Amino acid sequence: MIVDDHELERFALSLLVRRDPQIDVVAEAGDGQSALDAIASLADRGLPVPDVVLMDVRMPGMDGTQATRRIIERFPGVHVLILTTYDQDDYAFKGLSAGAMGFLLKDARAEDITHAVHALAEGEAVLTPRITREVLDRTSELSTTDEQRRLGALFADLSPRERQVVELMADGRSNSEIADAMVIQEASVRRSVSRILTKTGLRDRVQIISTWYKAGR
Rank of each mutant, 00 (worst) to 15 (best):
I2R: 01
H6Q: 13
E7V: 02
E7P: 01
R10A: 02
R10W: 08
F11E: 15
A12I: 05
A12M: 04
L13S: 13
L13D: 06
S14F: 05
L15D: 10
L15R: 14
V17L: 08
R18A: 11
D20P: 04
Q22Y: 05
D24R: 15
V25N: 13
V26G: 08
A29P: 03
A29C: 05
D31S: 13
G32V: 09
S41E: 15
A43G: 02
A43M: 02
D44K: 10
G46N: 05
L47Y: 00
D51T: 11
D51Q: 15
L54I: 10
L54K: 04
L54T: 10
M55W: 06
D56E: 08
V57I: 14
M59Q: 14
G64D: 12
G64N: 10
A67P: 13
A67D: 06
R69Y: 07
R70V: 13
R70Y: 12
I71H: 11
P76L: 04
G77Y: 00
G77P: 01
H79R: 15
V80K: 03
I82Q: 01
L83N: 04
D89E: 12
Y91D: 11
Y91C: 12
F93G: 04
K94Y: 03
L96W: 09
G99M: 01
M101A: 11
L104F: 06
L105D: 10
E111M: 09
I113W: 00
A116K: 09
H118G: 10
A119C: 13
L120H: 00
A121K: 13
L127S: 11
L127R: 07
T128F: 01
T128Q: 13
P129I: 09
P129Y: 09
P129V: 09
R133L: 13
R133S: 08
E134Q: 13
D137V: 03
S140F: 03
S143H: 01
T145Y: 08
E147N: 03
R149A: 10
G152Q: 04
S159L: 05
P160K: 06
E162T: 03
R163Y: 00
Q164V: 01
V166E: 11
A170Y: 07
D171A: 15
D171I: 06
G172D: 14
R173Q: 13
S174N: 08
S176Y: 07
S176W: 00
E177F: 01
I178T: 00
D180C: 02
A181D: 13
A181N: 01
E186W: 00
A187Y: 03
L197N: 11
T198Y: 05
K199E: 14
K199S: 09
K199T: 03
L202G: 05
L202H: 11
R203V: 11
D204V: 02
V206F: 15
V206E: 07
S210C: 11
T211M: 06
Y213V: 07
R217Q: 12
